[in-house]
Design a protein around this nucleic acid. Structure first.
Lengths: 249, 249
DNA sequence: CATATTTATGCGTTTTCATGCCATATTTAT
DNA sequence: ATAAATATGGCATGAAAACGCATAAATATG
């Protein structure tokens, strides 16, 4: 069998099944795995497939995943994300909302971390999926196209059954008197339940949302354990929250 | 034998078999391999074939096998997507698996369509979310990073409670004897349940996957109502499936 | 017709290519 | 953490190609 023939066959298989395994091909074509690997390498160099450990993937296969997410990462949110990620330890069950700060948290997770992340937010789930070692659980229900999160009775019931170690909420408003507030009723319900279902509640927000209000109440300051912003904890604007018994990072 | 004769013979062989081996030709025509090589070189210079190490290939070989497939199969899938999308009517509840054909179906949905789509496939959900009028429901559970789909007991239980009008399955193997098969156990389970939970079952696949087998059984042909490929329904390869009582589009 | 000249072919030698094998990293899964 | 699978780079080997050269047949030339 000619080299080109073999490569054509491989390419055919890749396009057919979206993936090939070196070991399988080697056995099938009866050449050494070295040869297969060299072939895959060449085809990969020519851009005809994507080489991965153990075999190769078709290009169209991998395209799918990178489609939906183009969050412009602000430095402030990156800082918040890093502080938040540092709280998570191996083995934890972590419940999270959606939002850009949460996405940044997901990106800041150390690769070695082994934990379970539970969320109804599709962008968040997409980020968690990139991580090599964390277990990802999606809360199902009706999908809100705006918020890109699953909402509804089903989702709420599901979250109620969870007992998480940590809950990360990206919030849009926090106020010393009224606590955190929302402008979407369904999402407010979800966040309330998430708070109830977690041992510790962490709120993440950029500082400009501090001392702002929205119509729908989520929780009081007393329900919040940790508040994360991009500011250093001794910033004056955070003082009232520390005084209210919240740990500020 | 004259040189021209020899070259004509070689060319004939190339066009007939899509490939020739220098060694074989040399033996066949009883000239030295050098001569064959020189012939191949000349023919290659004239653009009549493609010289490779060990022999030569016909042009059509490269055209068909190489450049064709990746783009071609995308087009094929678009055709499938359109046929599939045409089956859906306002008000329907539609259960779908993941896979590239399903994605194309999602893209082919008419903007005015009002229906409810239920799936555990994240790429599929992302597509459905782009649509202005359809309701999207996500099946929750553990996320399989490979398949980008939610899998597990929870997901299965959820699907069991659904009674959908239509079920679209992107399948990787269908065979006249064994029906449809899978190589992932969890996904096979999901597909089985989806079939049980739907009035009508539609299988979508490019024709290359017809009459192929994989290890895990999903369902028999009798469970399938409609089969969609990129081929016209009267293609010979589809005949056995029509005879088996499947509606082929 | 004798003899250059071109063309086609084969042969040996040297290079290059394709492939397998192995020892050692690296990655992945358990 | 550990075992299994996979990757990497070097090396050996046989097969194919390239190159130069010799030869012989075909063709041209005076």
């Amino acid at each position: 069998m000619l080299k080109k023939e073999r490569q054509a066959y491989i390419l055919h298989q890749v396009n057919l099944h979206n993936k090939v395994l070196s070991s399988l091909l080697s056995h099938e074509i009866r050449v050494s795995e070295d040869t297969i690997r060299r072939d895959l390498m060449e085809l990969s160099d020519e851009g005809k497939l994507i080489k991965v450990h153990g075999g190769a993937l078709s290009h169209s296969f991998n395209d799918v995943i990178y489609s939906g997410l183009s969050v412009y990462s602000q430095d402030q949110k990156k800082i918040i994300g890093q502080k938040a990620a540092a709280l998570i330890q191996d083995g934890m069950f972590v419940l999270t909302s959606g939002g850009t700060t949460i996405i940044e948290m997901a990106r800041a997770l150390p690769p070695a971390l082994r934990a379970t992340f539970i969320s109804g937010s599709i962008p968040a789930i997409l980020e968690y999926m990139q991580h090599p070692n964390i277990e990802v659980v999606m809360i199902g229900d009706r999908v809100s196209k705006n918020a890109k999160i699953t909402i509804g009775a089903e989702a709420i019931a599901k979250i109620k059954n969870i007992n998480a170690d940590l809950c990360f909420l990206g919030i849009n408003s926090i106020d010393i008197k009224r606590g955190t507030t929302e402008n979407d009723w369904e999402i407010a319900q979800l966040k309330k339940i998430m708070i109830d279902s977690s041992q510790k509640v962490v709120c993440c927000t950029i500082s400009e949302k501090i001392n702002t209000l929205q119509p729908i109440h989520i929780c009081n300051l007393s329900d919040i354990d940790i508040l994360i912003t991009e500011l250093p904890p001794d910033s004056p604007v955070l003082k009232p929250y520390i005084d209210a018994g919240i740990q500020v990072l």
